[in-house]
């Protein structure tokens, strides 16, 4: 893995002349991405806005986002890793077998055209979605696209950015990184942070029955997780903090109602490019914020431990 070549969405707006979306459908999932950050805004080095940019969409089906694209590349499901790896080879003028490329659903000419555009771009960006990261290959796909972006920097400026959903999921990565050194799945049972996806990731922990209590905040796993994981949530004492009585709160031992983030609770949320943005809540909630409740639980726990 070659790290994550990153930039802000402001840099994309002002500089990017090649925008590639891979395994994502911003027209329906991030509706203002095109108009606020990537395609139509007029930037310092993209004074003509849309006319100064080329957009490529790579996906397994023609989503509504294809209408915004100059080039749509339809690949076969589960072939992302092969396409990314072929692109890495073509960019370095390595030989590529046209028959094996054909198995991806694209022709070698299409990939050569894309590779040429990537190398000729002044500033290229690849935004990748769950169509890449949650299908066959998973984190190896993420690794492949980040490596491709890193290697393109031998020719031009190129970055890759995940299209994060779910409000502040980017903040969770960022906060865990600057508090523990790791982005998710961090275990403190030895008194210092340890990181091991598979061992300390939630679904694995629940399915194996490794944890004997769960506190859920800012999520509703009982509505989305696989059944064996939900069964374990029912088995152990579960505490849920949520602005409404959620599916998970209904099966929990303790439920605490909290103010809704950004609606009636203030604070900071990280945008997908890891820029922190302050909230301006418009309403006053009758309930405390998640932050206040977590702090009170921690203080009460600390008092118990001191006894």
């Amino acid at each position: 893995m070659g790290g994550k070549p990153a930039c802000t969405l402001g840099e994309v707006k002002n500089r990017a002349d090649l925008i590639i979306y891979w395994g994502g459908n911003p027209a329906e999932c991030h509706p203002r991405h095109f108009t606020k950050y990537t395609l139509t805004p007029k930037g310092k080095f993209t004074p003509n806005g849309r006319k100064d940019r080329t957009m490529v969409l790579v996906d397994i089906r023609e989503t509504p986002s294809a209408r915004a694209a100059d080039i749509f590349l339809q690949i076969r499901p589960g072939r992302d890793f092969e396409v990314l790896t072929a692109l890495r080879a073509i960019i370095k003028d390595q030989p590529v077998d046209p028959e094996r490329v054909a198995q991806t659903g694209l022709t070698l000419d299409q990939l050569r055209d894309l590779a040429g555009r990537m190398k000729r771009a002044r500033f290229g960006v690849m935004f990748f979605g769950m169509g890449l990261t949650m299908t066959r290959g998973k984190y190896m796909n993420s690794s492949a696209i980040l490596t491709l972006a890193a290697e393109l920097n031998a020719f031009t400026k190129f970055i890759a950015m995940p299209m994060r959903g779910h409000g502040n999921v980017t903040g969770a990565d960022t906060v865990l990184r600057w508090t523990t050194g790791y982005p998710f799945g961090v275990c403190f049972n030895r008194g210092y942070p340890r990181y091991n996806p598979g061992e300390f990731s939630t679904i694995d922990l629940l399915v194996r029955g490794d944890v004997d209590a769960v506190l859920v905040v800012g999520a509703d796993p009982a509505a989305t997780m696989p059944q064996p994981a939900i069964e374990h949530l029912k088995r152990v004492p579960t505490i849920v903090l949520d602005p409404k009585v959620s599916t998970t709160m209904r099966i929990a031992r303790v439920g605490i109602l909290t103010a809704a983030t950004g609606i009636s609770a203030g604070g900071t949320v990280y945008r997908m490019d890891e820029v922190p943005i302050p909230l301006r809540p418009a309403l006053r909630s009758p309930y405390p914020t998640d932050e206040e409740v977590l702090r009170r639980i921690r203080q009460t726990l600390a008092a118990r431990t001191d006894e």
Partner: peptide
Amino acid sequence: PLIYGLSNITSEA
């Protein structure tokens, strides 16, 4: 114990 979620809450939380 497991503390899980953290998506739709502030970074302070």
